[in-house]
Design a protein around this nucleic acid. Sequence first.
DNA 1: GCCAGCATGTAAGGAGTTACATGATTAT
DNA 2: ATAATCATGTAACTCCTTACATGCTGGC
Lengths: 201, 201
Amino acid sequence: MARASRSRPDLSPTAYALLGLLSFGRELSGYELKRWADGSIRFFYAAPAMSQVYRELDRLRDAGLVTARDVPGGATRVTRVHRITDEGTAALRAWLDDQPAGQPVLKHGVALRVFLGHLADRERLRATVAEHRRRCEELLLELEGVEADLGDDPTWHHARLVAEWGRTYYAAEVEAARRLEARLAGAGDGRRAVGERGPEQ
Amino acid sequence: MARASRSRPDLSPTAYALLGLLSFGRELSGYELKRWADGSIRFFYAAPAMSQVYRELDRLRDAGLVTARDVPGGATRVTRVHRITDEGTAALRAWLDDQPAGQPVLKHGVALRVFLGHLADRERLRATVAEHRRRCEELLLELEGVEADLGDDPTWHHARLVAEWGRTYYAAEVEAARRLEARLAGAGDGRRAVGERGPEQ
DNA sequence: GCCAGCATGTAAGGAGTTACATGATTAT
DNA sequence: ATAATCATGTAACTCCTTACATGCTGGC
């Protein structure tokens, strides 16, 4: 029934996230957007694959929310740079106003593994948690680096707020992992299946 | 090239998560699995839609990892209950052993909105964060309820560990939200577009 | 000479969702 | 009576990923 005919085009959250990056006013290529997403959005909203970035940019262009311009030469054959339009800014605002944020979506493979810990070797499980903790510690360091780079510029006021939230978030994840590791460090009796009680019945 | 021909069938993480619930040894219907997922997996791994539960159960059955049995009468027309097979337990163990857990996937719509705060009314943004905090507080209470229900039974040892992790997680989220709210409570200058500097140029 | 980084895309498919369709039982 | 809960499924669609295809430029 031809949805989104006039008011607001029907785009994925990721499209709006990319439009959001463009809302800071810079003219960017798909490649640059991906790199920026990897250094910002990644910390709180899974960064899209390269191929998705290009697809979403196509859609944003089709909807008139960004304009594209081919810049020859540069570093390679041709670079297509994108700039948000006034309609783009308006559409993004409308989306932010109308769409409720909804619950965060979390898919925590490590937590799932702990939950199913009765099927795993305890030491192995502890190692999985430890690896997760180390990754979180790295992310925390990266995030602090990003935060430092933001400096005092009022442009990045909200980015700094999110970075602060992220620090709390990843620090909590590290803390929780540490506690889990301690709980799993005791002399493990190895794997034990709940479904298999006794040798035959 | 006919993958997963012998060794391990090629199933989605959600299928393994459901198989994981069945690994506790109970015989469950799709409906019961969904309800249980909503009360356990949901806290750390997005609970699947009803329709997906049935689809994954079909696949698990096709792969011989669960057996199904129709129980007539019960509460309604007919209830198809599922039980994990020995191959199912083996496949789940193999999956847990072979597949690395990978980074958690997070899609935090609230954080995205804060990041794009320059496009939103400050008071509205604060309300969004406050609503998120309240939801987290609710989830925290629910989680504590679940934890209490688990009791001392060694069957739920790992479930208790995950619940503990979850408490840290949601408590941190509440704490971070509270701080954000405080930062956003100051006399707001309302929305201001970075892309629009000046009336015309 | 070769590899890493810059740069843009297409093709195929998996994972998951919402909306729809159906119907019995139980509690208010 | 009628709403909520129990119960199973199909259809259509979106989102997003991996793998593939291509080619330039600059540093080692």
